[in-house]
Amino acid sequence: MISVRTLCKAHGARAVLTNVSAEVTKGETIAIVGPSGGGKSTLLRCLNALDTFDTGEVVIAGVTLRPRSGGAGETLRALRTRVGMVFQQFHLFPHLTVQANITLAPRVVRNVAPAVAARRAHELLDRVGLADRWDAYPHELSGGQQQRVAIARALAQDPEVLLFDEPTSALDPEMRGEVMAVIRDLAAGGMTMLVVTHEMHLATEIATRVWVIDRGGIAEDGPPAQVVEAPKSQVAKDYFGRLRK
């Protein structure tokens, strides 16, 4: 489903990603963890071309991304309908209702009939537990509810891969659970997901695999039982040690 080959990216003289290679198969949930500034978010953003990279190649959901491929409208459109993204700060459209937030992209990008898009939006809202809030505006919702709408919005494009960039970091602890429940549900449904997170719970119980990213590279890559419980690298040991405290 995803193949990352020798990805490198630098901001000026500072290397952000150094020679990252990885494979993800369909249905996997990857928890991407590691210290701040290690390149987790940048790697994620390179996967749907919100960031460009300098060398290497990404093949994701059948779309091949090459270095510095910022433009190429048709490729980007294909990529982004197949790869959904959920942001730390939700980024819902404040001028649109929940339903309009969810139906905008299907209607505009894929020309789905409004009635069809609306029906699908209601299904998705039901799935994230917000069936009754379809006509609310984002500012009327709690942070947890907004993030669940954002997930429904990403799902409305029927993506093959979902990318999460710290989906619970901006939430109060009591709201993280409701978002985690949705992610757990998606994992159970077989969605391929990459989740940048600091949630131990997600890494140990939902993820099929954990990547520890540090200084622009994947320091450790394996099932939770191995990476979390018996880390080999010093960075993973330090990281999980801090989280457990």
């Binding site: 749907n48 919100l50 409208g73 980007l76 459109r77 982004r80 309908t81 959904g84 993204m85 942001f87 700060q89 980024h91 819902l92 459209f93 905008l104 992209a105 505009v108 990008v109 894929r110 919005r153 990403a154 494009q157």
Partner: peptide
Amino acid sequence: GQTEAAKALGLG
């Protein structure tokens, strides 16, 4: 973030 969210959804 608004531009990024729109881009990520495939809007031109």
